[in-house]
Amino acid sequence: MRQHHLLPPQPAANAPDSEDTTSGRIRSLLNDIVEKISSQCCLLDARMRTAMAEPESGMATAEYAVVLIAATGFAGLLVAILKSGDVRELLMSIVKQALNIG
């Protein structure tokens, strides 16, 4: 993995004072943050490349789900229509006529 350094390394000093150690800690923290962001970007890039390799691989499942929901709604509508009194009488008259013809 590549090493990213946000800030250049600080020069070596014989006796670092408190400002040098503070800036060294800040520099170290910033470099750690850059490294974490870089690794997360690499993971995101890999996920995006995987998803874009076959963008329609999950479409069949989604299409089946949409068709199933539409069919369930249509079945509910038919049940509501067939339960009405007028439609029931119409269907009963059709069945009686079909049985009387024979």
Rank of each mutant, 00 (worst) to 15 (best):
P11A: 03
L68W: 05
L30V: 02
M48I: 15
L44I: 13
L82R: 08
R47E: 14
Y64W: 03
P16N: 00
Q3L: 12
I69S: 03
A46V: 08
L43I: 15
Q10Y: 01
M92G: 03
G85A: 15
S18E: 06
M52V: 06
K36S: 13
E56D: 14
M92W: 12
Q10T: 09
P8E: 03
I26Q: 04
N14K: 11
G24S: 04
G58E: 07
V79S: 09
I33Q: 02
L44F: 12
I33P: 03
S84I: 06
N100M: 13
R88E: 12
A70K: 07
T61L: 11
P11C: 00
L29Q: 04
V66Q: 03
D32W: 07
I81T: 05
S38Q: 07
S39I: 15
A98S: 07
R27K: 00
I81K: 05
S57P: 09
G102Q: 15
T61D: 01
N100R: 14
A60W: 02
I37H: 11
A51K: 06
K36T: 11
C42H: 14
P16L: 09
A60R: 14
I33C: 05
C42I: 14
T21Q: 08
C42F: 09
L30F: 05
G85S: 15
A12L: 15
A60M: 11
E63F: 05
G73I: 08
A13E: 11
E54K: 05
A13R: 12
E89T: 15
D32L: 15
Q40H: 08
K83R: 09
C42S: 12
A80D: 05
T61H: 06
D20Y: 06
R88G: 06
S38M: 03
A15Y: 02
Q10A: 13
I101Y: 00
T22N: 06
A70S: 04
I81M: 04
K96G: 07
G76V: 01
D86K: 07
Q3C: 10
T61S: 07
L68K: 12
N14F: 14
R47C: 06
S28C: 08
R49P: 10
L99D: 00
D45R: 13
E35S: 14
A15G: 04
L68S: 14
G76D: 06
V79L: 07
I101W: 01
I69D: 08
S57R: 11
L99T: 12
G76W: 01
L77R: 09
A65I: 09
L99A: 15
E56L: 08
V67S: 01
D86R: 02
L30S: 08
N100H: 10
D86Q: 09
V87C: 01
D32P: 03
L82T: 00
A80F: 03
G73W: 01
P55A: 00
